[in-house]
Every structure is written in structure tokens, then in C-alpha cells.
Nucleic acid binder design. Sequence first.
DNA 1: CGCATTTGACCGGC
DNA 2: GCCGGTCAAATGCG
Length: 333
Amino acid sequence: MEKAWSLEQNTLVSELIQGMEVARKLKADLRMTPSSFDNRDLLVQRILSSYEKALQILTWNASNSKSQPVGATTGAPESPISVNGSPLRDELKPDSKKRKSTGKWMDHVRVSSETGLEGPHDDGYSWRKYGQKDILGAKYPRCYYRCTYRNSQNCWATKQVQRSDEDATMFDIIYRGKHTCFQGNNALLPPKKPQKQQKQKPDNDDNHPGQEGLSVDTNNLGNTDMAYPFAFSSTSFGCSTQENHTILPFPRDNDSFLCSLSQTHPLSPTTPELNYFPSPSNKLDGANNKQCSESDITGIVSATNSPIPDFHFLLDQVEIDPNFSFDAPDLFS
DNA sequence: CGCATTTGACCGGC
DNA sequence: GCCGGTCAAATGCG
């Protein structure tokens, strides 16, 4: 809930802020007698646009909220996760082929590749495919990936990618475990670009989730923690480190970051899926995210379908009060 | 040659 | 016994 800052939420905040800003400008403008009519009209239009988008976000989230992921446990994470630590590791422990009950520590993400590109969506991490399975009732097989650095850095993060039956351009991605590898810890590092990821798939047919485009839809993000990554620090969305915010995964500047989310980023090394979010989460811990760790992260992001068309545009324009805190719990309760 | 993907087999839970 | 998740040998690619 609160902790999870979905992209939408951030967008919503941005919209509201923008509306506020524009309203202020209009107010100032009105004081100045000679202001041009066009200018006022423009400002009014922007205000309306901002509120409209904010409403769209709200309504959209509401409608999607139900589809939220499963597994995710929102609540109680029973597994304390310490990154290095351990308890959690048991659950993920690979050695046993046994899978533990599914359920916890999952991060569910939905990505769509409207471009149809196949590029695998990268989330910034390097993944190695270790299996593929036809799932009962599913039209497309499910692909299993684990962190490339599993052995070298003892990173047990894994993810499952499944193409949606209804919409072949959509992929449901479930992340399990958090990255304890260097890339994960720094999650935000520029993704290295392992070539591998990209290769994910040659065949379009099924498995490959590749998509690239990612706009993020955060639909349901609600619960998830994944949103953190979006904890932008005010002015510079993202990249900063102010307070307890996390650094965005993308080293790029705001625009780039946004673009990558909203449109396909050419390289998007990572997927839009925000996968990384999970990891970054740790960093946020300071606050209340601790639990996010692998354990219960659940978030959904969808790429192309973002309800918000020009989301990045908004963000760019908005000047956010430097003191404004997106974290404010009350913003969205 | 090293690393990633493919794919059938294996294993455990239900 | 079925199903889903993982392993590991075979294969491919750079």
C-alpha cells in the first residue's frame, strides 16, 4: 500500500502537482491584467488535462486492482528477508528441486510489448533461462529464468515469464527472490548489458517475452513494493538520492527514464518491467520497506498499455517542489 | 572456448 | 498420477 509507489501513483502525484502549478500560474496570470487570452486558455487546458489524467489513473487502478497478483503476499511476509541472510534463502533454496509453495516473495509484473519486438525485456538484470514448461490451461509456455550470477555471486533471484493468453503481447512476469548479486544490489546500475538477455529469444512464438517497450503501467501496483523505484525524489525524478529514495535504475536522466518507461526504450536493457524494483527496494529500507524483499513484493507493471499516454511529458514539465515528498504516506492512502 | 539456450527428465507437492 | 519447477546434457552462438 502505501509503501508501494506505483508508477501510477507517482504519475498521479505529478498530475496533481502540475495542476496545482498551472493553477498558480493562472492565478498569477489573472492578476496581471494584460495577460493574453491564449495564455490563460492554455493554462486552463493544462489544468484540466492534469486532473483528467489523474482521474484516469485513479479509475484505471480501481478497475485493475482486482487482478492483482496473486501470490503476492502482501501482507505478511513471513519471511524475513535479509538479503544475505538468510532465512529466506531457505525458501528459495535451490538446491532442492522442490519448490516451496508458491506464494510468497513474489513480484508479479505484467509487461506488454506492443511493438512486437521481441526483445526481451530487460529489467536491468542478467537472467539465464533454465527451463520452459507448458502450463496447463495456458496457451503459451512459461519460461523460467534465474540470475546469471547465481553461482558466482550466490544470487538466487529467479523469474517466470508467461505470455498472456488473451493478449499475446502481454507477459506476466513473476519475480522471486531478490537479487543479492552485485547488479542487484546496485540495481540500479546501468544494466549491463549482457548480451544474453537479449537474446532471449529467437522465436517469437512463445516464450519470449521480449518486449521492449515498456511503458509501465502500474496498474495494480498498489501493494507492491516495487514501486519504490519510483520513489522519485522530487525534482529530479529519480536519480537522486535524496532522503530515502532510491536511485532509479536507469542512470539516465529523467527524461530518459521516463521515456523508457513510457515508450520503448531502445536499449532498454531492462525491462520495463521494473524488475528491478525489487532490489532496489532494499535500499529503501530505511523506511518501511524492509519487507519488501523478496518476500512479498508484488507489483504489476504493464508496459505498453499504460493508461497514461504521455506520462513522461508530464513529469518533465512539472516542477516539483523540492521539498515535496512523494513518500508521504498520506498522499494516497 | 565459454557461456547461454533448449529440452527432456527428474523431483516433489497436491 | 498430474502438474509445475528445476536440473543437466546437448546444442548453438559469438
